[in-house]
C-alpha cells in the first residue's frame, strides 16, 4: 500500500484538568466546569478533523520519558486505569485503546534508518502515560480509531534543544515516510503545553476559574510570539526560535513533540488554525491545527 498521508498536524496539549472538566464516564472525579476556552477549542478541532476524516492518531507525549532512545507502544490493545501522579485528585481514567502496532513498527524501522536509537514496548503490563491518554481523549473521545504512541527521548535534558531538534526532525521524516507507505490518513498530535511554569498551590475547588491566569506576563508574551508565527505560517521561524523559547518559557516543547510534528509536515510555510489559547494552573496551552493545502477542513 502507499498513498498514505498526514492529513493534519495538531498541537494537542494534555492538562488532565481538561478531561476532568469534561466529566467523561471514564474519569472518576467530577467537575462543575472549567477551562471552557480550551475545551471548546478542542471541540472545534474535533469537528474539523471529523470533516477531513482520518484512520489513525499518532501522538508524541512528554510524559512517556525515555532517556535511552525513542520508544513505541507495541502492544495491540492496552486497557487499565491511569492515575495522574501530579494531579491524582483530577485524573483517574479507565482506558481501553487500540494500537496500530504495524504502523508503529514501520515508523520505528524508518527511525532506525535515520540513525535514531529506538525500542518497541512489548510489556503487556505497561501503563500508557496520562499525556497520551489525555491528548487522544480530547481529540477523539469515542476512541474509535487506533493510535500510535511515541515516547519523548529526553535529548534536551541530556544535550540541548538544538540536538533534540535534530533528532525530532529525523523522527518526523521517518514518521512521514512510514505514514505514506501505510496508505493511511494520519493525524499527528504534539502533546505539549507552551509556557510551562505551574502554580505550586491549588484552589480548594480546582476548577475555580477566578484563580486561573498565566504565571507571568513574560511567559504570556513568549506564548503569543510563538502563536503569532504559527498563525502567519512561519513554521521554520518557530523552529529557529525553539531553543530560546524552550529555555525562556520553561516550555514543554523540550519534549520534542512540536518539533517532531512540524518536521513530519515538512516544516511548511502554512498558516495554522489556532482554536484556543488558555492557561491551566498557570501554564500556557494552545490547541492548534495545521492542514496541508490540499486537505481543507
Amino acid at each position: 500500500m502507499s498513498n498514505g498521508r498526514i492529513v493534519a498536524g495538531c498541537l494537542a496539549p494534555h492538562p488532565p484538568h481538561l478531561v476532568y472538566a469534561e466529566n467523561p464516564p471514564q474519569n472518576e472525579p467530577r467537575a462543575e466546569c472549567g477551562w471552557e476556552g480550551l475545551r471548546w477549542g478542542y471541540e472545534r478541532m474535533r469537528k474539523d478533523l471529523d470533516r477531513i476524516g482520518y484512520d489513525v492518531l499518532i501522538v508524541l507525549s512528554p510524559h512517556w520519558q525515555t532517556y535511552i532512545g525513542t520508544h513505541f507502544l507495541g502492544v495491540p490493545r492496552c486497557s487499565s486505569l491511569s492515575v495522574d501522579p501530579i494531579f491524582p485528585n483530577l485524573f483517574r481514567y479507565r482506558y481501553d485503546l487500540e494500537v496500530d502496532v504495524a504502523l508503529a513498527e514501520s515508523i520505528r524501522d524508518e527511525a532506525e534508518r535515520e540513525g535514531l536509537v529506538t525500542k518497541m514496548m512489548r510489556n503487556p503490563d505497561f501503563r500508557v502515560d496520562y499525556g497520551t491518554i489525555t491528548s487522544c481523549h480530547l481529540t477523539n473521545p469515542t476512541w474509535d480509531k487506533p493510535i500510535v504512541a511515541i515516547s519523548s527521548c529526553r535529548a534536551t535534558a541530556w544535550y540541548s534543544v538544538e540536538v533534540m531538534q535534530e533528532q525530532q526532525l529525523a523522527l518526523g521524516r521517518a514518521t512521514a515516510r512510514a505514514v505514506a507507505a501505510s496508505g493511511k490518513r494520519a493525524v499527528l498530535l504534539a502533546s505539549n503545553s507552551l509556557s510551562h511554569r505551574h502554580f505550586t498551590t491549588e484552589a480548594a475547588v480546582p476548577e475555580d476559574m477566578s484563580r486561573e491566569h498565566v504565571t507571568s506576563h513574560a511567559l504570556y508574551l513568549w506564548d503569543m510570539r510563538m502563536l503569532d508565527l504559527m498563525r502567519q505560517g512561519k513554521n521554520q521561524a518557530v523552529l529557529d526560535l525553539m531553543p530560546e523559547f524552550t529555555t525562556q518559557a520553561i516550555s514543554e516543547t523540550d519534549s520534542g513533540a512540536l518539533t517532531w510534528m512540524l518536521g513530519a509536515l515538512g516544516v511548511p510555510e502554512l498558516p495554522a488554525e489556532v482554536y484556543a489559547y488558555g492557561t491551566v494552573i498557570g501554564t500556557g496551552n494552545a490547541v492548534v491545527g495545521w492542514y496541508p493545502p490540499e486537505v481543507t477542513p
Binding site: 501530579i86 510489556n123 503490563d125 505497561f126
Partner: peptide
Amino acid sequence: IIGHQMQADPTPTWTHVDELFH
C-alpha cells in the same frame, strides 16, 4: 508540583512497569 505529596493508601497494590526499562 502542588508542594510535596505523601503516599497514604494503606495497601497500594499494582503491577508496575518502568517507562524506560520495560
